[in-house]
Nucleic acid binder design. Structure first.
Length: 559
RNA sequence: GCGCUCGUAGCUCAUUUGGAUAGAGUAUCGGCCUCCGAAGCCGAGGGUGGUGGGUUCGAAUCCCGCCGAGCGCACCA
């Protein structure tokens, strides 16, 4: 597990400074443990940072906000962080400007930490399990799975960067009725090929891939052209599709530490044990020949059947058993990335876990839901239906749009907003994908540095220890503060389980770089200024690269 | 009918968890390459944040009602 010194950002440093001033100015307040918050004003006229504590404390202290702000500023210890004296503005905000030396500090920190800049030890190496994709092996992965894969993988990377010990897991529902459907569908195609009269099963899968599987089956099992051996057909179809899915995921640069088979819950008796435990806890009752779980004791709106009158279990029982198993494997924290159409099951799985009474925390597991994707083709919405065989596969997307653009597209929006994927646009105008904007910023910097080297500049590592005092322009100040925001941004994204925050940040950082590039020149005659600027953009390239790495996107030197 | 998620510029979406004048991209219009990559930059127009209340110094953000959208509401998975 890579570690790095935590970069004490300017924001925290300022918060500490004001916390001390608060203690000096209002000693009596210490008992109530008020915490100073430092924020970044949207309006540049309001300085680099702002403190609004005076407004929040007005009522508590029975004083006017302006008086409190004044007392705080007066009590501030001298610091080389600050440029001049903070201003008191509006109803009682304190606006702060950073000194040049405080702003340039981040460049050194970027070089010291390099590929680890932005990492923290917050997770303290605790185990966390991230479950995602978990597609049934009944068809190829489609765009929805792509979104799940991109989000789940990025969440995993984010948590890794926060110092968690992350395990990625894929849960295969290989024991249910859908697998049977798959087998029957393949069998129907086999019979068709063999000229045996038979009807296609109700609810069967109509996609072309079913015929493909049938063709492959006959190649391997020439003696069973009509698919009479259903078990063999089933096993073959599942193996075939699992392999296909693995290839899709590999092309997407997503890998898992473990594939957990639903069937193993049965073969290891975990479902029976879970049910027995719930019965023993008195959380169940018999009614109408079925066994019910009192999920209403834990906030569900009605009780749920666990064991049907025909003796089989409903789907959520193995889900509960699976999560008990996660807990018992030592994952005190678990995150499940799911399509929003599954949200109905969250309450009952959590209720089941609570009813176990084995110390599982009430919110276990965390869920991250992503909304469905509307796919447009030819100006019309494509209704995704695996059963009808109408959908767009993840592989198609990767082949035609590219891995980087596909990943970025799925990540850049908040996961619980619905998004529209226009296939034609993605195919014909893939260069408009915002990921290129970010990658271009990186490539641009590399290009400038390469030219500096051909002019005899030497190794870029010499740029890491130059004097940064010439960096006095507004563009440089904006860029340096953006770099300094990176660690906090990652932390925020990890806390919120919201990968899109990283994408939004990178777009902003790239914009600042492009603006700077167009406003100033780097390869100048003024040696000191040249080196300082090159050093700044070298640090920027490092941060762009680190951010793209967290998203699983490459940072090319040329495009 | 009940539940979950949501409603921000023509379109696609942000808004750092309650802060000051709500921002990007795209589309439209107008500028910028004899000069480090124009996959870029600069500027203009475009908004009663679905709507009506409430909470407070302060609300797109929190609470309630209504309107609208998506999804889920089987002894299916």
């Amino acid at each position: 597990m890579p570690t790095s010194p935590v970069f004490l950002d300017n924001k925290s440093a300022i918060a500490a400074l004001f916390q001390q001033a608060l203690a000096t100015a209002f000693p009596a307040l210490m008992a109530s443990d008020f915490k100073i918050e430092v924020e970044k004003p949207k309006n540049p006229d309001h300085g680099h940072f702002a403190v609004n504590s005076a407004l929040q404390l007005a009522k508590k202290l029975g004083k006017k906000p302006c008086e409190i702000a004044d007392a705080l500023v007066t009590a501030l210890a001298p610091s080389d962080l600050l440029l001049g004296t903070p201003e008191i503005a509006g109803p009682g905000f304190i606006n702060i400007r950073l000194s040049l030396s405080a702003e340039t500090r981040v460049i050194k920190s970027v070089f010291e930490n390099a590929d680890n800049f932005g990492r923290t030890n917050q997770g303290n190496n605790q185990k966390v399990l991230v479950e995602f994709v978990s597609a049934n092996p009944t068809g190829p992965l489609h765009v929805g799975h792509g979104r799940a894969a991109a989000i789940g993988d990025t969440l995993s990377r984010l948590l890794d960067w926060q110092g968690w010990d992350v395990s990625r897991e894929f849960y295969y529902n290989d024991a249910g009725a859908q697998i049977n459907n798959l087998a029957l569908s393949v069998q129907a195609r086999l019979r068709e090929k063999a000229g045996v009269e038979s009807a296609f099963p109700d609810g069967g899968y109509h996609g072309d891939y079913i015929r493909e599987i049938a063709d492959r089956y006959v190649e391997k099992f020439a003696h069973d052209k009509a698919g009479g051996e259903l078990d063999a057909v089933r096993a073959f179809a599942v193996d075939y599709l699992r392999n296909e899915q693995d290839l899709d995921l590999k092309a997407f640069d997503v890998s898992f530490d473990r594939y957990y088979l639903e069937s193993s819950l049965y073969s290891e008796n975990l479902v029976d044990k879970t049910v027995a435990h719930l019965i023993a806890n008195g959380k169940t009752y018999e009614q109408d020949g079925a066994l019910w779980l009192k999920t209403t004791d834990y906030g569900d709106d009605k009780d749920r059947v666990m064991r049907k009158s025909d003796g089989s279990f409903t789907y959520f029982v193995p889900d509960v058993a699976y999560h008990v198993n996660k807990w018992q494997r030592g994952f005190a924290r678990a995150i499940v990335e799911l399509g929003a159409d599954h949200h109905g099951s969250l309450a009952r799985v959590r209720a089941g876990l609570q009813a176990m009474q084995i110390g599982i925390a009430a919110g276990y597991p965390d869920y991250v839901l992503h909304q469905m994707i509307t796919v447009m083709r030819g100006g019309e919405e494509v209704k995704i239906s695996k059963r009808a065989g109408d959908y767009v596969t993840l592989r198609d997307l990767i082949d035609e749009v590219g891995r980087d653009a596909t990943r970025y597209f799925f990540i850049m929006r908040k996961s619980d907003s619905q998004l529209t994927f226009d296939i034609d646009l993605a195919r014909s105008k893939s260069e408009e994908n915002p990921v290129y904007y970010v990658q271009y910023a990186h490539a641009r910097i590399c290009s400038v540095l390469a030219q500096w080297q051909t002019q005899g500049g030497g190794d870029t590592s010499t740029l890491k220890a130059v004097d940064h005092s010439p960096l006095t322009s507004k563009y440089e100040s904006d860029l340096m503060r953006a770099l300094a925001d990176f660690p906090e941004t990652l932390k925020h994204a990890a806390t919120e389980l919201a990968p899109h925050i990283v994408a939004v940040y990178l777009a902003d950082l790239a914009a600042k770089l492009h603006t700077y590039y167009n406003a100033e020149r780097f390869l100048l005659d003024d040696e000191k200024l040249k080196l300082a600027r090159l050093s700044l953009i070298l640090a920027t390239a490092q941060v762009l690269k680190n951010g793209l790495t967290v998203l699983g996107v490459s940072a090319p030197e040329k495009m």
